[in-house]
Design a binder for these strands. Structure first.
Lengths: 225, 225
DNA sequence: ATAAGTTAAATTGTCGACAATCTATTGGTT
DNA sequence: AACCAATAGATTGTCGACAATTTAACTTAT
């Protein structure tokens, strides 16, 4: 059912790709704690590759805003903060709102049908409390709309950039599954607007959905700090 | 008067920085034509630096979406197209709209005063038809609002990413100064909304302003193709 | 003559070593 | 004791060479 999640199944062809993916994974999942320094030599011995490939991986992570680098000093994993989270969600609201608007205009009839089918399958699981995949389901929903915008800049910024940071916050604040049913209803309304080819409403609903999501995760952040 | 334009006065500390800035400049200004291939060895001899430096510069340009790279094949300068322009302005509308909204909330009273002063000085030049710096003036206006948002992600995406692409379109389509007076009026209304601390209106006006700007540049693009 | 297979040239990817810069420790001075 | 200067150590930045892959040219067979 979640077979269509091969979205970010980005395949590593070069050695730097592998280092980049591995390093990103370890950072996002907190194996490498946020705020810690990234030593090029240390990582090169740990990953059994040259310093050049580690360096390239770190440069890419810098472009994703996952690490901060200072010339002649080094790179540090970004540190998580309430302000950083708020900024992140403000950008998400802007970009995903636009994505929903464009999706209402550009998604094919088949893609809209698939999106409805996805929601129906999720509806069953929500009712029967099979919430195992709820996080993956949420991701799947958002990814489809982002891709449905057919805007390569939008897609790249969100998929390659922001979403890994969002996941970093989610994972490291340990929020497995909040707000399942209410989020599901919001998803339903968004899809309805897209089905009706109503760009303005789709954008507005998506923005409200993300604002709610922000408030929810911010509340959790208050507790965990 | 335009002294505050040291915004993107990013200073190059490392050798890669210099190569990156130089290469970006040559691409944006069309010295290196869009669509052409970037040979690492060729550039390294041309710039008198190691291939590693050029490589790092190209990687950074890829992160800016100024060049496209394929593993084991090489990098090409992106090619300009009406679709690419439309996508660019859709993202600009989303991000700068949000920037205007946040600027209405977060700009200091002093910053707002400076912004008003900027408009007044420009008003004089518009009336007296001294339009020499009108492009720089437009940039200055937009930059201040972007920085006024106080959102580092937003700032980074626009200043380090999109704006160079926008400028690439502007320069290579040879549009020096369109739409001066009407754009100036739009700027005035946006600043008014920010002065009134009206986020919703500021966002809406900024989005319309960018949409108009898009339509204008798209019309020119029709002629030049 | 066209198409597929093979080989050669050129380009990118990776590596280890050297140079330049920063950080921390040490020693000296007020 | 606090502050500044100099030095030693460690880390990053840059380089040229080698390895792997792709592209092109050339050969050969149908």
């Amino acid at each position: 059912m979640w077979a269509k999640m091969e979205f970010f199944q980005e395949q590593a062809v070069t050695s730097s790709d592998k280092a980049f993916f591995r390093l990103r994974k370890e950072i996002v999942e907190g194996v490498i704690p946020s705020g810690s320094k990234l030593s090029e030599t240390e990582l090169s011995t740990k990953y059994q590759v040259s310093r050049a490939v580690v360096r390239e991986a770190i440069n890419r992570l810098e472009a994703c805003n996952i690490v901060e680098r200072r010339a002649n000093v080094g790179a540090r994993v970004v540190s998580l903060s309430p302000e950083g989270l708020a900024e992140l969600y403000q950008v998400r609201e802007a970009l995903e709102g636009m994505a929903a608007r464009l999706a209402a205009l550009h998604m094919s009839a088949e893609e809209v049908a698939d999106l409805n089918a996805l929601l129906n399958s999720q509806s069953h699981e929500v009712k029967s409390a099979e919430l195992y995949y709820q996080e993956a389901g949420d991701l799947d929903f958002h990814y489809r709309i982002i891709l449905g915008s057919k805007n390569s800049h939008l897609i790249s910024m969100l998929v390659n950039g922001l979403y890994h940071l969002v996941r970093m916050y989610r994972v490291q604040l340990g929020m497995a599954g909040p707000r399942v049913t209410s989020a599901f209803d919001e998803h339903k309304h968004i899809v309805q607007a897209i089905s009706n080819r109503d760009p303005e409403l789709a954008e507005m609903l998506m923005r409200r959905h993300i604002t709610y999501s922000k408030n929810n995760i911010e509340a959790k952040l208050q507790n965990s700090l």
